[in-house]
Amino acid sequence: MVLSDADRSLVAEIQGGLPLSSHPYAKVGERIGMEEQEVIERITRLQDEGIIKRLGIVVRHHELGYTANAMVVWDVPDEHLDEVGGKLGSESCVTLCYQRPRRLPEWPYNLFSMIHGKDRQRVLNYIDAIIESCGLEGIPHKVLFSGRRFKQRGARYQ
């Protein structure tokens, strides 16, 4: 889908957040010269088309006590990727699950999942439970806990 100029100005206007007042969409409209109804229709369409993945609260997981964050990577035979990715993605403690390219020889892993928990031991327990429930015993994996976080911000759109 090609975004119109009106869509682009709306996307840029609300990227930092919605106004916290009774009629937030009317307020957004005032700022970019659009009627409330048009703002509502455009946002609804952007959601339907998947450009807005989600509207609402975006948390800072670290501040909510999810201080252990592990990127768990798996070296899955290509022919089993869809099956394993689907299983992993449906586990409730997996917050993201993507296929990415291997970078051989340094990096043999092609399936990336994120698992957050309140401490490292809990995350490791989740991983053990996932390996069992998804039957991943034969699939090499690696757990990369995060150390320091240097930077966290969303992407910015013009």
Binding site: Q15, I51, V58, A155
Partner: peptide
């Protein structure tokens, strides 16, 4: 405690 209250965009789209 919240990063923001608003949209989560699909960057590629």
């Amino acid at each position: 405690q919240l990063s923001r209250f608003g949209p989560l965009y699909n960057a590629e789209r």
